[in-house]
Design a protein around this nucleic acid. Structure first.
Lengths: 212, 212
DNA sequence: ACATATTAGATATTTTGATATCTATATTTT
DNA sequence: AAAATATAGATATCAAAATATCTAATATGT
């Protein structure tokens, strides 16, 4: 067994559960709790203890036999794993209802994200400030990305405009796009697109409701 | 083989992909297209043809050998499967940034959902109208649910308030809760909770970004 | 008319993720 | 001090989901 044993791939589902754990660990830490067991966490999350155990083991959370996982240390490894220990600057394109709501969400600073500017094409929005974030015209997007060497963008604009803006973003050097528009964006290799679609959740809800 | 052969359980992942298919089928239908193949849909969605074939077969989408799936008929079976062929009335609780954004989203009428009233405790919001939806005080929630025999509620309020409101909703007869608050709600058996958590998507994005 | 290509349909295989079981250890209780 | 208990850690099993392979049918092109 050498120093560089192959790191087991961490599953997508595990990654998606990490923020939930993190929130609970922040709370525990605020209360001065130093250790927490997977059974306690299972009660909080409605997950099975074994799921939690395996998730936390996967990211290398420090623990103490019989006592549980170490709160401070676990926060550290999860934050480091997600890169949430430092802030990544991001632009947001499309200051509609959802875009404005995201600009108003102050929780992103706990999630490694800082939206430093927003962009829109509507004259009445350009040059204004939404929840403290300045709004520029979309025409300025390209130069501002290059100037700030920005890597992450949040897309909250209508489906019809999404691909065009995406091409601009990619050409200017953006490497990760968090896409809230209901389209599948075409991007070259090496650019990450994370698509959000709340209608999936609604579909799940409706299907469960029907099958009762 | 009888009339009532056991319907194969449809997977959660399939259900979550249905809205995406539906959007594409609506477009095709608008363009007068009558048939579409799984390979065409695969191009549009970036999914594999076999995934789409199996998803559509699972909901019983009508098809024609060699020619593809029938557009109009497939829309019908998906809508029926999700219950989106008729509108379900819903209340929204918590008119913050996100709540207001959801009230402003007019796409829900294509998704079987009609938010007919919103509730909040802030005096400046109560008795106002947000994107055409009237806002009432949360104290009126219980009686209004009972009066309208309402079954679905959307929760967009702070974590601290979510469980209390949930108890009220359940007591008044709500059967399905679409929960955007970052908490795991406690509900009795028979009540459905669908939790949305955009930080999961952000975690996925950040993990991919880090592992590059 | 015949050959070719494309497709839904069915089945089999593989991969991923969730769950169960067992063990060793530290803590608490008696 | 001894017994009981709760836990992380490891391994094994099971279930869900994705993917591959094969078949038969039906267009299309020559």
């Amino acid at each position: 067994m050498g120093l560089f044993h192959r790191r087991k791939e961490i599953s997508v589902q595990t990654i998606r559960r990490l923020p939930q754990y993190l929130r609970i660990f922040y709370n525990l830490h605020a209360y001065g709790r130093e250790l927490v067991s997977s059974t306690y966490l299972a009660d909080e999350t409605h997950l099975l203890p074994i799921v939690i155990k395996k998730d936390l083991q996967a990211v290398g959370a420090p623990s103490k036999l019989r006592a549980g996982f170490k709160v401070a240390g676990t926060i550290e490894v999860i934050e480091k794993f997600l890169g949430w220990n430092k802030l990544n600057k991001a632009f947001l394109v499309g200051v509609g209802h959802l875009g404005a709501a995201l600009l108003g969400f102050d929780g992103f600073k706990n999630h490694g994200l800082e939206i430093v500017a927003a962009f829109d094409t509507h004259p009445e929005k350009v040059a204004s400030t939404v929840h403290g974030v300045p709004v520029y015209h979309t025409a300025q997007l390209s130069t501002m990305i290059e100037k700030q060497n920005l890597k992450i963008a949040v897309l909250t604009l209508p489906a019809a405009a999404a691909q065009g803006v995406t091409d601009t973003l990619v050409a200017a050097g953006v490497k990760a796009i968090w896409n809230f528009a209901p389209v599948n964006l075409q991007v070259p290799d090496g650019v990450i697109v994370q698509k959000e679609d709340i209608s999936s959740g609604l579909a799940e809800l409706c299907a469960k409701l029907k099958s009762k």
